[in-house]
Design a protein around this nucleic acid. Structure first.
Lengths: 240, 240
DNA sequence: AAGTGGTCTAGACCACCGC
DNA sequence: CGGTGGTCTAGACCACTTC
């Protein structure tokens, strides 16, 4: 048993961590030691080294050239993959303080569209929540979400808090979501609630969230103020 | 030497192709044969099978559960990761016919902002291209892009075609890009050129593209019509 | 307990780059 | 040519799920 780092993580992840540390002393486009050298250094097989380097490559930290070597990427491109987050988490990541005001909350039969997207029989009762989302006390987004019956009593829900956090507390882990992002002009009512001029540009994000099993757990339509919100991400050419 | 498929591609990619074919006959959440079964079926080692399945996993076609098996993803949630594409590729994927009209094309010294984002000395000459992008003959986007000197003669560039394709032909492979997506209102001039009412909502996408070495190869600011364009993607909760 | 995917080893050969 | 990364093999043990 190795004296250092006996956490439960895989060996290649620990190697990756150590490689990241040693890369910090290198300049862009400097070459790393060859994989065969690294085998000796870390005392692991070549495949383990390659898996570690593969990790770094996916994070954009290094790039490899066949026949030539492994090199440090010019660090301009920090990987910022778009990740599925709740509004609360999203705002905190942006350094803003989230809050929320519930505009309406009701249990009602799912309409055809809602039922279809949540894989429910039309008429099944769902929780409908309409909330104004604030960041640093100022309106940021207007959200309408629908939650299907998933074993949590409607009355237990705390509309002000993070939906995902409350689901997690009940053993429901949201895994991924399909979303559509549109650019729209705010109508009079929306503009008024968001404290924006009528016709101002906004994002409309329509999202269906799923747990690992593929069962939908939330349908949300959110209007984000265009002057306060944007998407910032790094995308790659090939499927990562 | 195998009788079938002796193309230059790797064995695991050929296995992946065959797996995709056989998956088409399965339903969502059906399980694939175990990796050890597939070894027998394809007559390859387990690692080759795993690399093939890894490909499918990255494309969101299957998912794996330790101790349980490999399963077909529900096609509703099949990955539509935002990938780095040229306008031409993007439109074709949407089933539209792209075309382009060059509004202006010039070689000029890079301004401070452009130079900074392309890692150039201010004043370095760059190609500035202003194009109206059409889909099915109707305006879709208005694009201004800056290309640094990357070993391609300015005069060789064909503004009408795909920039990425031309770069690739010169051995420059675009690998990833950092982009910011904003929601904005069109001003009078932009609206006129996009055949939209003044103030209509649009996406402003600002993108810096990099080759795998981290060297910037393009800066582009594109205005997409909000009524014709949207982003459709699947995001996951955990990072790779 | 049996079967699954997850990790790891110690080799091997190939394709490509630079000298 | 030697050195590099890219692929592949035939094993092995572990962690986990399912029964």
């Amino acid at each position: 048993m190795p004296s250092s780092s006996t956490d439960g993580r895989s060996k290649y992840l620990r190697v990756a961590d150590e490689l990241i540390e040693s890369i910090k002393t290198l300049d862009p486009h400097d070459s790393l030691p060859s994989e065969r050298d690294l085998m000796q250094t870390f005392g692991v097989s070549r495949m383990t080294i390659r898996r570690a380097i593969e990790q770094l490559g996916r994070q954009g930290i290094v790039y490899q050239v066949q026949g030539s070597g492994t090199f440090v990427t010019d660090p301009e491109v920090v990987t910022k993959t778009l990740r599925l987050t709740s509004f609360t988490e999203d705002m905190e990541r942006r350094g803003l303080t989230p809050s929320s005001s519930t505009l309406s909350s009701s249990v009602e039969p799912a309409s055809g569209e809602v039922a279809r997207r949540l894989h429910l029989e039309p008429g099944t009762e769902v929780l409908r929540l309409e909330r104004l989302r604030l960041a640093d006390g100022e309106p940021m987004a207007l959200e309408t979400c629908y939650v299907p019956p998933i074993g949590i009593g409607w009355t237990e829900f705390e509309p002000a808090g993070s939906l995902y956090a409350q689901m997690k507390a009940h053993g429901i882990n949201v895994d991924r979501a399909a979303q559509t992002i549109e650019a729209v002009n705010l109508d009079r009512d929306q503009a008024h609630r968001l404290d924006q001029p009528v016709g101002a540009a906004a994002f409309r994000v329509t999202r269906v969230s799923y747990r690992e099993t593929g069962v939908p757990v939330e349908l949300a339509a959110t209007l984000y103020r265009g002057d306060r919100y944007d998407f910032d991400l790094v995308i790659s050419r090939e499927a990562p």
